[in-house]
Design a protein around this nucleic acid. Structure first.
Lengths: 213, 213
DNA sequence: AAAGAATGTGAGCTTTTATTCACATCTTCC
DNA sequence: GGAAGATGTGAATAAAAGCTCACATTCTTT
């Protein structure tokens, strides 16, 4: 398997029509996962929804799990690309604005397809995708570590890796939760304000460490 | 169905031996879920592991999902009981200590059986347990809201419900992640320090809101 | 145009899983 | 001790799902 083939695609499509077949399968799978969850996404069902025969599905994906992992790979790649792009643009903005922009980006990312995102996050680690999940988290943490190091003058003394770990998990969970459970907070600035405050408080507050109370 | 029977147990056990059967089934299910995940926990497999016939399983649980939900109910009840107890003891400790104690409690809770916890959290919403999951989150948020209101003099002006929502999700995600991915941070105080700092920074920092930078 | 490669098809095989049911065995209680 | 209810059994059923394979169609290349 080639390095651009991390999810065990059986055959690499060589003609346009086969690329379209693969695309149709992935789209159909996404659709079913999103609307009806993992259990409903049987291989036969996906093939029908994709307007493709079950045999074609198995030509490109050796099993159901690899199909879902392929979808996850694509999904997380999109997220990481967007994050990398945003972090790149953030070099010289004031800290507060940068933080808001990052939060805003996380919200965008989660709003694209919240239901699918939820299913993937919950299911992928259990079907052999734990490693890939870790890779994504680590990549996000690395981006953030870079960011924090570049901004060290504006921050309290940090253990950068540890802080990046904390923030990646906290912000991911918060955006995930707000999108799924309190979408009304996204109408205005309420959520972005609040999350930014949490992050900035964490990154800058050192005077408050020691005093008891 | 009695009020203490929220997970559709078919029959309420009346003799000790049947209570033991139910117990054996739940224990076996927990064991398999923990070690091998949701897919591996077939009803027949659970029955074998429990040393009980498959018929007995169906006497008490109408289907596989209800079994897993019952396990989740028990698990989340334990968590909530512990949290309620701790919040009760925290009335007059200094804020900083209280926050540390809460974080410490969340860590304890997650350390009891991290693998099972992960599976339940990921799987339960997808098998008809979304409502129960929300109930637990809401209960935790309510406890925290109470706590924050009682401490309002020591905090910046807060939207209590919103802050409780933010903190419940952030702290849950952080303890979940640290237990599963960075357990070494639990050897010393590193994680509790860091999480407490995040929380206190969020709850007390108001001077840092407006200045640009 | 023709052959070989790539792609597509779907009936049906196999395995797995949930679930039932007719019957056996225990417990309670008179 | 014995009847009635509670509990336990596991072979068997039925449905569902994953997956294969022999064959058909389309594309590329010369």
């Amino acid at each position: 398997m080639s390095p651009t083939n991390p999810s065990q695609v059986r055959k690499t499509p060589r003609q346009r029509r086969s690329a379209e077949t693969v695309e149709a399968i992935l789209t159909a799978a996404a659709h079913i996962l999103e609307k009806e969850g993992f259990e409903a996404a049987t291989t036969n069902r996906v093939a029908v929804e994709a307007g493709v025969s079950i045999g074609s599905l198995y030509q490109y994906f050796p099993n159901k799990e690899s199909l879902v992992r392929a979808l996850n790979d694509r999904h997380t790649k999109e997220i990481l690309d967007l994050l990398r792009k945003r972090f790149g643009e953030l070099q010289e903005a004031p800290l507060k604005n940068s933080v808001r922009a990052i939060v805003q980006t996380m919200v965008e990312v989660h709003r694209v397809n919240p239901a699918l995102h939820r299913v993937l996050v919950n299911v992928v680690p259990g079907i052999g995708g734990l490693a890939e999940t870790r890779v994504v988290e680590d990549a996000a943490a690395a981006l953030l570590t870079q960011f924090l190091k570049a901004r060290r003058a504006e921050l309290r003394p940090l253990n950068f890796e540890l802080s990046a770990f904390m923030l990646v998990h906290a912000v991911e969970a918060l955006t995930h939760a707000v999108v799924l459970e309190r979408p009304e907070l996204l109408k205005g600035e309420a959520f972005v304000d609040e999350a930014s405050r949490m992050i900035l408080g964490y990154l800058r507050t050192s005077a408050l460490d020691h005093p008891e109370t």
